[in-house]
């Protein structure tokens, strides 16, 4: 559950940074359409909100929110580093992260 929350944060920040034209260009070498930009940002905020759910489910409201808040930091940090050093990995990681977290849920 904790890993799922973290994974959703990673995807959310991937989506949010691609929603910024400067970083979209870094990854795709072209400018985003306005509708792409809007969709990506909405998706990002939605995922950020969604990431609260597993955290609270696993740890209760107060510890869950604390975990979520610090998972935000990790998600943003990771995407920031990827954008700087490996922009090509932003999209794959954002898509894969929740999928990778799912098997961990079973354990």
């Amino acid at each position: 559950m904790i890993s799922l929350s973290l994974a959703l944060c990673i995807s959310a920040f991937g989506s949010l940074c691609l929603g910024m034209p400067r970083h979209f260009e870094q990854v795709f070498k072209r400018k985003p359409h306005p509708w792409q930009q809007r969709t990506l940002r909405l998706l990002g905020w939605g995922l950020l909100g969604l990431a609260i759910v597993p955290a609270i489910h696993a740890l209760g409201p107060s510890v869950g929110l604390a975990l979520w808040a610090s998972a935000l930091t990790i998600g943003a940090l990771l995407q920031g580093l990827l954008l700087t050093y490996r922009p090509g990995l932003v999209v794959p990681l954002s898509l894969l992260a929740p999928l990778l977290a799912l098997p961990l849920l079973a354990t």
Binding site: F13, C17, M20, R22, H23, S70, T73, A76, L77, Q79, G80, L81, L83, T84, Y85
Partner: peptide
């Protein structure tokens, strides 16, 4: 928010300072 420009001297230090501050 996501910006870090390495190997740019003072600019990079400022970026790193801002990023470590803002992210957390």
């Amino acid at each position: 928010f996501f910006t870090f420009r390495p190997r740019k001297g003072q600019r990079s230090w400022l970026d790193a300072h801002n990023a470590t501050a803002v992210l957390a």
